[in-house]
Nucleic acid binder design. Structure first.
Lengths: 195, 195
DNA sequence: TCCCGATTCATACGAGTGTATAAATCACTC
DNA sequence: GAGTGATTTATACACTCGTATGAATCGGGA
């Protein structure tokens, strides 16, 4: 396990992530990853035992920073602060692809993964979702539990949804640059949780 | 082109749509479609010249009712009415799969289609998006053009995003039944376009 | 220098993909 | 009833996929 080994592993992860972000999960294959990494494709099977394992590792790598960011959502903080601590990690860049967002990688993987991997992502998200709702309930007395849950789902869906599946072009609306601006997002979420 | 012919065509379209909705575009193939339709797979190539054409037709079939519904968004109507005319078609059921939404089919196809088909969907959406923004601008004087565009994108993304990629399970939050209730959606959109 | 483990490479196999082709079957008119 | 065009079927080809296998190559201690 010399330095060159780690480099190849990283190159493969980065290449796979890049493909995932800009071509989508459809365009991902062992050979494409190898080619994009400038490396023999069969090294995917060597360094990760299967392509699924590579996806798994990529998933963990992109999930961790988001979950860590979310830990900052605490009961003591004011409403807007909580909101920011929730939303900001969702805009975090992907592990190896500064142009793409980590959430996109997670979503592509979660949408593809048939088995445990997807279940794990979903369950972690679910778990946080419950905590978030409990914490925000205090700040939104005008919304009952069902309504609050619906609003939160809509807001997070708004973040997950648009850029990934279009792979470049937005499904509705113009440039998409606005979506990456946390302030746009903050104003939107604040409004969406009001009256 | 007897009656049985039309039936087979329809059966294939319905089967493809069903797979698209519940397994996602990944699970779609000529043979799977044939099997799901209880019909020889090569009939896909016979009735549509290629699988891409089948997708195209499926796309048109699901796009049309949405676009028609959107024509009801008119300048004279009050704000809430415009909102409803915009949002309600987005919950319309898929052409052959009452359990799934037409928008999901479109999104799965648009996310996959590399070429013209996707461009067409996006451009039609884009076109309507512009008209919608112009019409709603009168009702939202508190939002400048950029802000309004961002809000509208978030709202539509909230609708397009969540159910499709999860193929059953929601990415965040509970049952997801709430998402299909137009009243939840109306309240959300109204709030998101306020202050 | 030799050796040995780690890493890279080339090749191959089985499964699945879309689609072309030709034969078989059906429905209907003359 | 025979013939004809539309429809269905069976088979095959070329391609891509993930992965297993064995050989080639590299790097560093004895």
């Amino acid at each position: 396990m010399s330095g060159s080994t780690l480099d190849t592993r990283t190159k493969l992860l980065a290449a796979a992530e890049g493909i995932l972000v800009e071509r989508g999960i459809t365009g991902l294959s062992v050979r494409k990853v190898g080619e994009a990494a400038g490396v023999n494709p069969t090294l995917v099977t060597y360094h990760f035992k299967s392509i699924a394992n590579l996806l798994d590792e990529l998933c963990q790598l992109n999930l961790r920073p988001i979950m860590q960011g979310w830990e900052a959502v605490e009961a003591g903080k004011p409403f807007e602060e909580k909101l920011r601590c929730w939303l900001e990690p969702m805009l975090a860049p992907a592990a190896f692809t500064p142009g793409g967002r980590a959430l996109v990688v997670l979503d592509e993987i979660a949408a593809h993964g048939e088995g445990e991997l997807r279940q794990q992502v979903l369950s972690e998200m679910e778990q946080f979702s419950l905590r978030l709702r409990r914490l925000l309930a205090a700040d939104c007395p005008h919304l009952d539990d069902t309504e609050l849950r619906a609003r939160l789902r809509f807001i997070s869906a708004a973040l997950i949804g648009p850029p990934p599946r279009s792979h470049g072009a937005p499904m509705l609306g113009g440039t998409g640059k606005a979506l990456d601006d946390i302030e746009f997002l903050m104003r939107f979420a604040k409004a969406a949780l009001a009256g």
